[in-house]
Write a protein that binds this DNA or RNA. Structure first.
Lengths: 226, 226
DNA sequence: TTGCATCTTGACCATTTGGTCAAATCCCTC
DNA sequence: GAGGGATTTGACCAAATGGTCAAGATGCAA
């Protein structure tokens, strides 16, 4: 296992790709996400990924030079999407609506891409062998930036004094929990985020807990104030 | 992989065990926890567990009949400890202090047994192949019982109306997050729960967010009331 | 000390699995 | 439609790994 941050693992990813290449790489990445998220890196087999993608193992290895390369590509493929919601926190917005929107987005991600969440969780739990450099640079920068936004809201008296980093961790933890532990949640409640009612119930419960926890008014009063 | 709920995987676990058996089984379980939590079921190797436990692979397989048996024993060994804190929620207590104590206990567990947390998370994320029956019976019963406790507090006007199950999920998610994602947390903050200051900071942040989120007064006012 | 059960191990085996390679086959350009 | 590169695959290989087994070492009771 080596790094993934820098250039592309396998060449010709970005630039010129024949239709067939494009299609096959995409099929492989989809299959790989399923496999890796279900079995973890070690538990996944190249053979099964290839079968899921509808091709021979040899052919898969024509597109990606090794199992690790597939894994890294899958991770990279997800990562941006997975971290995107945090970027949408707007300093000009009101904390309540901004945080509520962020939480909803995160839960939507958990509902729509639970495999991505599990893959990410798996990677981090194993010590983040591939993405540690990214966590330490890009993500750290992003968290610092958004912490400052929250800090400013606090300084402006718009919300209770809470540690911004722990607030972010709490949001990550709760929202991702519904994807990562969906089996447990289904065992306990009989439902999960794929059920629209349960989805809304979850958004509502988590949002109200965290926003009220941060000293914000939620749900917003009838609205016509100010 | 078969079930684990019922009897002991390997015989002679409970009753008569020679000193040497007792010692070796314990060494094995310790080593297994380390390995399984670090690499997952598939990634762990019997050879390495044996080495960590200071014995030959053959000898390990004299004590546990298979890799799966070690895994199940490890899981069983942890499970009770891991779920114990929830049992301590006392209906007679005040919601604020009861929940605060529960949260602290859970974070203490995350600090003291992070491997257990990760092993559990791993198992559940892979679909809980071994412990699903336990989740569906024992844990479900326990959660229902404690949800009722919270429900009663709400009915008694002692706390805001929140969905008890989601409240429990939120507590699990946040507290376990600090163990399962400790690498990410270290990457972002430079610290983790093994740092006493960070530990207290975490307890304080999480408790205050969740308790205030539940409409409770936290930290408690000077105290001498009522 | 002796005899027996417990304990321990190295040698060995079958299977799984990541990866290579040379031989096809497909697809596109000229 | 011929030539050549891109694509695809089965055969094959070496390493890793879970598990077996027979033989030897060790501990313990009488």
């Amino acid at each position: 296992m080596t790094e993934l941050s820098g250039q592309t693992q396998d060449p010709l990813k970005a630039g010129g790709m024949s239709r067939i290449q494009e299609k096959n790489r995409s099929l492989i990445l989809d299959a790989a996400l399923g496999e890796f998220s279900k079995k973890g890196f070690s538990g996944a087999t190249v053979e099964r990924i290839a079968a899921d993608a509808g091709m021979s193992k040899s052919n898969l290895l024509y597109y990606f030079s090794s199992k690790e390369a597939i894994y890294n590509a899958t991770l990279a493929h997800i990562l941006e999407v997975w971290l995107a919601p945090l970027k949408t926190l707007r300093p000009e917005g009101e904390p309540a609506s901004e945080l509520a929107a962020y939480i909803r987005q995160k839960i939507e991600m958990s509902a729509t891409f639970p495999e991505a969440s599990r893959l990410f969780a798996n990677e981090v739990m194993q010590g983040a062998p591939q993405i540690l450099p990214i966590l330490e640079t890009e993500l750290k920068r992003l968290v610092a930036e958004k912490s400052q936004v929250i800090e400013d809201w606090i300084a402006a008296g718009k919300m209770r004094r809470v540690d911004p980093v722990h607030l972010i961790f709490t949001i990550w933890a709760t929202t991702q929990h519904y994807a990562d532990f969906s089996v447990q949640i289904r065992a306990l409640t009989g439902r999960d985020l794929s059920d629209p009612d349960f989805f809304e119930e979850t958004v509502s419960s988590v949002t109200s807990l965290i926003l009220n926890g941060a000293g914000l008014v939620w749900p917003p009063e009838n609205g016509l104030a100010e």
